[in-house]
């Protein structure tokens, strides 16, 4: 009797026993891990499953729809034949804190971008930013760009570059490259015409 009582209460205690397997700790992309089913004594398993399935297909549809909207917007506003796109990339050995970049086409200012630490980190990792998208007539044009930022030792840097280019029918891509190829601890600026 005694044992029974104790066992009985003990088992109640075990109701709280932690026999859960280790769940994923705080991490960024949980989906694959967290979605492991089978063991999960979900309240209404089939409920969850079908709801989950419909949500998945909704998400998938939303992704497709977003792509179509993005495509339409660009084709409408920046048709391929007149489009000009200016990209920005960084290839620096030591850390360079880019603060801002300004862009002029044919003496009109078309872009003036302030960079946050998050964006700079993405550029340094190898991301290339599509800084500007616009339309231009066929013919000769001039692009001028300035950047400023802080290099190692908190030194301020300001650089500019200019390029003349021909716009034909069809999209034109230009790349602003910030690099310290010379490894003189000085960032340089060049503009590449992707003909």
């Amino acid at each position: 009797m005694r044992k029974f009582f104790r066992t009985v209460v003990l088992l109640a205690g075990l109701a709280a026993a932690p026999y859960a397997l280790a769940q994923a700790p705080a991490a960024s992309a949980p989906s694959a891990s967290a979605a492991a089913p089978a063991d999960a004594p979900a309240a209404a398993a089939s409920d969850t499953q079908s709801l989950d399935q419909s949500i998945q297909s909704l998400k998938s549809e939303a992704v497709d729809l977003n792509r179509d909207l993005f495509v339409l917007e660009e084709e409408l506003l920046f048709p391929a034949n007149t489009q000009v796109a200016v990209f920005l990339s960084m290839d620096v050995g030591d850390f360079f804190n880019l603060d801002s970049v300004s862009l002029k086409i044919d003496d009109h200012e078309v872009a003036n971008y302030l960079y946050t630490p998050r964006e700079v980190a993405a550029l340094i990792k190898g991301g290339v930013q599509r800084l500007y998208l616009g339309n231009l007539k066929v013919g000769d044009h001039e692009l001028t760009a300035f950047f400023n930022g802080k290099g190692p030792n908190d030194r301020d840097y300001k650089r500019g570059a200019t390029i003349r280019f021909k716009k034909a029918i069809g999209a034109k891509y230009l790349e602003l490259k910030i690099n310290d190829r010379q490894r003189r601890l000085q960032p340089e600026f060049e503009i590449k015409d992707w003909e």
Binding site: A20, A22, A24, A27, S28, A29, P30, D39
Partner: peptide, 15 residues
């Protein structure tokens, strides 16, 4: 405070 939600964990790394 996880209780009996028994799950296998994969320590998730960002894709």
């Amino acid at each position: 405070l996880t209780t009996l939600a028994a799950l296998h964990a994969v320590r998730a790394a960002p894709e």
